[in-house]
Nucleic acid binder design. Sequence first.
RNA 1: GGGGGCGUGGUGUAGCGGUUAACAUGCGGCCCUGUCAAGGCCGAGAUCGCCGGUUCGAAUCCGGUCGUCCCCGCCA
Length: 589
Amino acid sequence: MYKTHTCGELRKEDVGKDVSLAGWVDRRRDHGGVTFVDLRDRFGVVQLVTNPDISPAAHHALDPVRMEWVIKVDGNVRRRPEGMENPDIATGNVEVEVTKVEILNPARTPPFMIQQEEEVDEQTRLKYRYLDLRSDRMRDNLILRHKVVKYIRDYLDERDFIEVETPILFKATPEGARDYLVPSRVHPGEFYALPQSPQQLKQMLMVAGVERYFQIARCFRDEDLRVDRQPEFTQLDLEMSFVEREDVMELIEDLYTQMVQEITPEKKIYQTPWPRLSYEEVMNRFGKDNPDIRFGMELVDITDLVAESEFRVFSSVVEKGGDVRGIKAPGLGEYSRNQIDEFTEFVKQYGAKGLAYIAITETGEERSTFLKFIDENTKAALYQRMGAEDGDLLLFIADQQEIVLDCLGRLREELRDRMDLVDGDTLAFCWVIDFPLFTWNEEEDRWDPSHHLFTAPMPEDVKHLDEDPSQARGQQYDLVLNGYEIGGGSIRIHDGELQEKVFDLIGLDREVARERFGHMLQAFSYGTPPHGGIAPGIDRLCMLLANEPNIREVIAFPKNQSARDVMGDAPSSVTEEQLEELHIKLDLD
RNA sequence: GGGGGCGUGGUGUAGCGGUUAACAUGCGGCCCUGUCAAGGCCGAGAUCGCCGGUUCGAAUCCGGUCGUCCCCGCCA
């Protein structure tokens, strides 16, 4: 037997026991005589002691042993001498006096020190991911993720959901993200696609009468990567029949609230029940549809106040139908011209032409790009609307509404980070609802679905589909946490006729629609229950629960930014024979 | 597709026109019987990502290239 106990479980109560332990050498402290070895396994660390006077054979057996060697020891648990306890580790009151050592496998000197992976180049960590994952941090992240998924499965199982697997090899959909394609050997020239999500399939399961489906589903999208985006990621995919949007939202809210309390009790949920905010409201208040509501500093519309102003930057924008809005950064009134310029550069990245400001020092002195152009009354009204006080910095953008909101929304979160306004142990969940069903696509001169093309309109808005599609709101809901979209869903269209009308609206040719979605329309003609669902992202949730700065830290084997697996070296070239079998000829420049 | 940051011993950094390329840690050796990032002494280990240019002289300046991270576009 390798182990009678794990390295993390020995306590005062175990003193006197003969134990066998096995694990990795975390550290070794050789005092010439007495030698200490910290032995680590998945469950913790315990201190081993050898003494040449007591057990010379065991003592010398440890001589060659170095960090990350895998060893098995027999020994006796004893209480540490008075004053030698280590309160920093769970097993710190005891140690194991070693009587026998067996080297199970020596280790080369690792390319980096396991517990210091935070300051190691990420590429090195990814190349040796199996070493990186030995660290407490990564081990804890893997465990956290396991707990999240297990909690979800147990919770949904208790509520009569069944987990159904859907195919990974399915059909390409030109809408939305780019597909990963898989060539077919038996059908020359034809391709499967890896699913961007099991959307169509879960709706088919509703037609099939499953009623309550979920799946911890892997999804694939061939788009460029970000801190919170990987080409393959995991969703809790869920769909229910005979529900309205409130039913789905309540289910997820209850699930996540209980899960967080159970798994990360140190986290505080900012507001319960979770606020339900309309798309229009969050855009006006926060400038983005996935707002971080943990702090204030909301956007303020001053278009009406400055429409007639002498400051042409403002008034000319208003003439052209644009907006002027601002944000107040309390306490930044002493910022230098240079510091403010950094904000200007920041918003220019997102299309703003400039940034107007009023900086008010603690003593009430004002520096401004435009104050001299506006009269006292306007200034007073502006200060009142923004709640401006001594010491504040007021920042303004004038442009088309879309740009103003986007830039100020991003600026607001930039200020959050600079001013350190939020606490990572606060989870501010909220729902964003009442999205417009369509958004106008300027380039293609047509309406695009804002969520996806199966989203049902609000019943009272169906009438708008014919006259003014922009007025139609969808029965859609986005789940937002601390400024990240961590899920989205909707009540679906279950009526073939309405579905065809939506296809028409987005300019999808009937023939093309039949080719791509004929199977769905056909399915819907055989008795389809009203249904809806949601697909919360597991990776982003775990990232936030683990206070990690990016999604890769909660994925065992992530891809790097250029979608490469640096450990396994994928993607890689294949043999001529493989290509031939797949009827593929390469055309590389 | 575009913009920006970073590439110096195994790892993390310093050096930014002339240095024996510095420091920490890890690694090897010796000493050390109560440490827990143990300590002390000694030692090995880097053609400064790569290619080209400027210069009497390049880790250092310039151009290109590759890698990586962050961002924009993209992600229904």
